[in-house]
Write a protein that binds this DNA or RNA. Structure first.
Length: 286
DNA sequence: CTTATTCCCTGATTGC
DNA sequence: TGCAATCAGGGAATAA
């Protein structure tokens, strides 16, 4: 499940390989129709062919390919890719062995290709004139220098939902998914069910630091491959070996030895340490 | 504005 | 051992 660290790893892999390349051909398999948002596959192909990839950026969990106008193509265009659960964007030689579940292929002018693979077909490919059409409503980037503890407090606002639900809300904060929401709350020693608007100033600061630390560490490990995630070269990440609570139900907490528990918050499976992340706020000043 | 629920999709896992 | 039901979860859509 690609979240911010996974998508950023893919972006770093692909950036030097695809920037400057022109798209010479586009192929979309018939079963990929629902993946192509807002345009027919034929229209999608026609609008992409001949464009040059001028840049590759990331916003939250979205990858953005910045495309040029070709010789007789006018106006900027952006290909927005969201991998959702099982999407992958693979850069391969055109002659490389087939990958499973490939739904779309962009052939490039150096004999390589970008393959979009997606087992469950939950991902989305979308062409827009301005990236904000797709990512304009996203909250702040947690690894941006401008993301301070005050900005986190602002993102939480007066929301009364469980803090984990707010962390998963991309309009509050961009890029966290189920893995890193659980990991950040554990690192901050905050129960996932805590009502978001009741966090103390100290808890808010801990959560801010924890979110950034957890995402940084995951990025250093090239993302977490629990099931389907692979990077831009088809390789797995290593961060699944470093998580503290995610999918560790029944195993001992590395900090206190208590059994990691699993519940549901906002319809998502949620993992936490009942001793390190107590439901009740401790009495007294901290 | 808020929060909760359903749906999409298919391979892996669980239950009987 | 087999087969059906359930689970996984990001985000859009919908309901309240």
């Amino acid at each position: 499940m690609p979240e911010l660290p996974e998508v950023e790893t893919i972006r770093c892999d692909l950036y030097p390989r695809v920037c400057g390349r022109a798209i010479t051909a586009v192929r979309i398999t018939p079963d990929a129709v629902p993946l192509v948002d807002g345009a027919s596959p034929a229209e999608f192909q026609r609008r992409l062919k001949g464009r040059r990839i001028e840049g590759l950026s990331r916003r939250g969990k979205y990858l953005i390919l910045h495309l040029s106008g070709g010789l007789h193509l006018s106006g900027g265009l952006h290909l927005i890719v969201h991998l959702r659960m099982t999407g992958a964007l693979l850069h391969r030689d055109a002659a490389a062995p087939a990958d499973r579940y490939v739904r779309a292929v962009l052939s490039l002018d150096d004999g390589t290709e970008l393959r979009y693979a997606d087992l469950r077909k939950l991902g989305r490919l979308r062409l827009v004139a301005h990236p904000d059409e797709a990512v304009g409503r996203l909250g702040p980037e947690p690894l941006d220098a401008r993301f301070t503890a005050a900005r986190l407090r602002q993102a939480i606002g007066r929301r009364r939902a469980p803090i984990k639900a707010v962390l998963l809300d991309q309009r509050a904060l961009a890029g966290l998914g189920n893995i890193y929401a659980d990991e950040a709350l554990f690192a901050a020693r905050i129960h996932p069910q805590r009502r978001a608007d009741t966090l103390s100033e100290a808890e808010n600061r801990r959560l801010h630091r924890s979110i950034r630390r957890v995402l940084r560490d995951a990025l250093d490990n090239r993302g977490a491959s629990f099931r389907d995630y692979v990077d831009g070269g088809g390789r797995e990440g290593r961060h699944q070996f470093h998580v503290k609570v995610f999918r560790r139900t029944g195993q001992p907490c590395y900090v206190c030895g208590a059994e990691i528990e699993r519940t549901k918050v906002g319809g998502r499976s949620t993992h936490f340490c009942p001793r390190c992340q107590p439901q009740e706020v401790a009495n007294g000043p901290t």
